[in-house]
Computed example of a mutant assay.
Amino acid sequence: MSVILDVKGLEASYGPTNVLHGLDFSLEEGGVTTILGANGAGKTTTLRAISGMVERKGVINVGGKELSTLRPADITRQGIAHVPEGRGTFVRMSTEDNLRLGAYTRKDKNEIEADIERVYSYFPILKQRRDQQAGTLSGGEAQMLAVGRALMLRPKLLLLDEPSFGLAPLIVQELFEILKRINVEDGVSMLLVEQNAALALDLADHAYLLETGNIVISGTSDSILENETVRRSYLGY
């Protein structure tokens, strides 16, 4: 299987504060990789660096194209969709208009309509809320909308930042089952940042553990689950 994301020597900073210190990691095409770590470890910054949202150095290669010098809008056009923590929906717009906004770089109008229906097949509740203002959706519905809007880009790589944050356990379970379907049925590669390590490792096939901006452990999800440090610190047993 080919590598869709290859990162070498990734550094990132906020002004004078360095957050990432030379990360090396990769993601196989069609795979799901998760980045684990405590708050402040640099997980969200890693996704922001890939998306061009923070100052960064290093090599970020996606599908054979170097992205580290591109602007965020140009990175999006390369098929990289970012679902940020906090969802980031446009609260005064309707659910369906939010979805259409996700396809703003596309010109294939007929296929856009088909993709809206495909999103509705994954998230039937959004079809029921299609004319409702996004700001009136529940937390779970808003998160589903954020993922659905990202899918409207037809991404080859989906960056997910804490998709379970603030959601009820049953909604989280439903959402992660849908993410698995999207990965398997549509072949969308995913890089997942998730505080719930057990949930993340269940979805992912590979994992990296970050501590203070450095990768300290990496391996398959199964091997990470067997790691005593990870089990005690992040899984609670």
Rank of each mutant, 00 (worst) to 15 (best):
R118E: 15
R118T: 15
V119K: 00
Y120E: 10
S121L: 08
S121W: 12
Y122E: 01
Y122A: 05
Y122M: 07
Y122F: 15
F123Q: 00
F123G: 00
F123H: 06
P124H: 06
P124R: 02
P124V: 03
P124T: 07
I125W: 05
I125H: 04
I125D: 09
L126R: 06
L126K: 09
L126C: 08
K127E: 12
K127L: 10
R129N: 10
R129K: 15
D131N: 15
Q132F: 03
Q133D: 13
G135F: 13
G135R: 08
T136Y: 11
T136F: 14
L137S: 04
S138R: 11
G139H: 09
E141G: 11
A142T: 13
Q143F: 08
Q143K: 09
M144P: 07
M144W: 05
M144H: 03
L145V: 06
L145H: 01
L145R: 01
A146W: 08
A146S: 15
A146T: 02
V147R: 04
V147N: 05
V147M: 12
G148V: 07
G148M: 12
R149I: 07
A150K: 05
A150V: 09
A150C: 10
M152Y: 01
M152Q: 03
M152V: 06
L153H: 01
L153A: 15
R154N: 14
R154E: 14
R154S: 14
P155D: 08
P155W: 01
K156R: 15
K156V: 13
L157F: 04
L158W: 03
L158D: 01
L158Y: 03
L159Y: 05
L159P: 00
L160P: 04
L160R: 02
L160I: 12
L160G: 05
L160V: 11
D161L: 04
E162T: 02
E162G: 02
P163W: 11
P163E: 12
S164I: 08
F165L: 15
G166S: 08
G166L: 06
G166T: 11
G166W: 07
L167N: 03
P169Y: 10
L175D: 08
L175N: 11
F176R: 07
F176L: 12
E177V: 08
I178C: 04
I178W: 00
K180N: 15
K180W: 10
K180V: 02
R181W: 02
R181E: 14
I182P: 01
I182W: 09
N183G: 03
V184F: 09
E185L: 11
D186G: 06
D186L: 15
G187A: 13
G187I: 08
G187Q: 11
G187S: 04
S189M: 07
S189N: 06
M190Q: 14
M190C: 05
L191Y: 01
L191M: 12
L191A: 03
L192C: 10
L192A: 10
V193C: 05
V193A: 06
V193E: 03
E194S: 13
